[in-house]
């Protein structure tokens, strides 16, 4: 497919996607390539830095490192795309704050000058889902759908920082009941089902997971219970850290709360571009949906087999 120069992004990887859930990174690359959206590497980018921890420890550190990451894309003259809500939160909040507060920008640039960099504010940090929905658009995506899923019930999990704080996000101030991710999912024929407290946090962020795993796992237990009650076949998310929390966290919830949950949870967790890619007819191997190794103690911790089995006949 010829590359359309208006869709060109610097791929901000973050930490969890490349270093723990590389199937997410692989699926974003495959889907963007398929859609004719070009991805360039942001060489030497660091942790965003994670908002719940590093921002909570020392705001100036959070701001200056975020600004440095943005300058890498500014040098290339292209917008940033990230597949992680946490990275998106950091890069977008920092970008908004620096662009609205000249004094702050001046202070940060004094530090950046010491390593020969300058934050200009010339490019915009975007989320993968934002690019799909706003830059490419639903109608454009619809044109690529080759296979339609039938009878597939999906629990959509947005996560928090793709939506909030809404005054620094591109969704027109909507924060209680957005639909953009459901709309994207439903072009595949899958049905986004409603479930209790759909927009509740997964419990990973804000340094909670690092601080007290049991509390963090109780957030996901509650989510998983509501998702199971609603009869979902799979969970679809758009953030590697939520993904980790809902996949690995499912094992943890099964362990910590085995006395109160009854049957252990085993709901397959799939990243939005993995599902889209399947509907577009992309090889499941390229989407990181097939396990192709003998490694132990690596994700996905909850088997995707029931899902793959269910849709197998719909993909021909």
């Amino acid at each position: 497919m010829s590359k359309n120069s208006k869709w060109k992004y610097g791929f901000f990887l973050g930490c969890v996607a490349p270093n723990r859930y590389p199937m997410i990174e692989a699926s974003i690359r495959a889907v963007f390539d398929h859609l004719g959206a070009e991805i360039l590497e942001l060489e030497g980018a660091s942790c965003c830095p994670a908002p719940g921890v590093f921002r909570a420890f020392h705001i100036p550190t959070w701001l200056v490192i975020a600004a440095r990451n943005l300058t890498i894309a500014e040098e290339l003259g292209i917008d940033v795309v990230t597949g992680c809500n946490g990275c998106y939160g950091t890069l977008r909040d920092a970008w908004v704050e620096l662009n609205h507060e000249p004094e702050l920008k001046k202070m940060i640039n004094e530090h950046l000058a010491k390593i020969g960099r300058e934050f200009k504010g010339s490019i915009e940090p975007k989320h993968v889902v934002q690019v799909l929905y706003q830059d490419l658009g639903i109608e454009y995506l619809r044109g690529f759908v080759k296979h339609k899923f039938k009878d597939l019930k999906v629990a959509v999990h947005y996560g928090c920082h793709i939506i909030k704080p809404s005054d620094k996000r591109p969704w027109g101030g909507e924060y209680e009941d957005p639909t953009f991710l459901d709309e994207i999912i439903e072009i595949t024929g899958a049905k986004s089902i409603n479930y209790k407290d759909k927009f509740q946090c997964c419990g990973a962020g804000g340094a909670v997971r690092t601080a007290v795993k049991e509390i963090s796992a109780d957030f996901s237990r509650e989510k998983l219970e509501n998702i199971r009650d609603a009869g979902a076949d799979i969970i679809i998310d758009c953030c590697p850290f939520c993904h980790l929390q809902l996949d690995l966290g499912q094992m943890e919830a099964n362990n910590f709360y085995k006395d109160i949950i009854g049957e252990p949870y085993k709901i397959p967790v799939i990243y939005v571009t993995q599902l889209l890619g399947l509907a577009f007819g992309i090889d499941p191997n390229l989407l990181g949906l097939m396990k192709n190794h003998d490694l132990q103690q690596v994700p996905p911790f909850i088997s995707l087999e029931p899902f793959l089995e269910k849709v197998k006949n719909q993909l021909t």
Binding site: P18, G44, T61, V64, I65, K114
Partner: peptide, 23 residues
């Protein structure tokens, strides 16, 4: 990944910044 992991000089840049802001 092509992040700081492939660029030792980028790690140094980050550390330089963290020193500069007092972290």
């Amino acid at each position: 990944p092509p992040t700081v992991h492939m660029h030792p000089e980028a790690v140094k840049e980050c550390q330089e910044l963290m020193k500069s802001v007092g972290f």
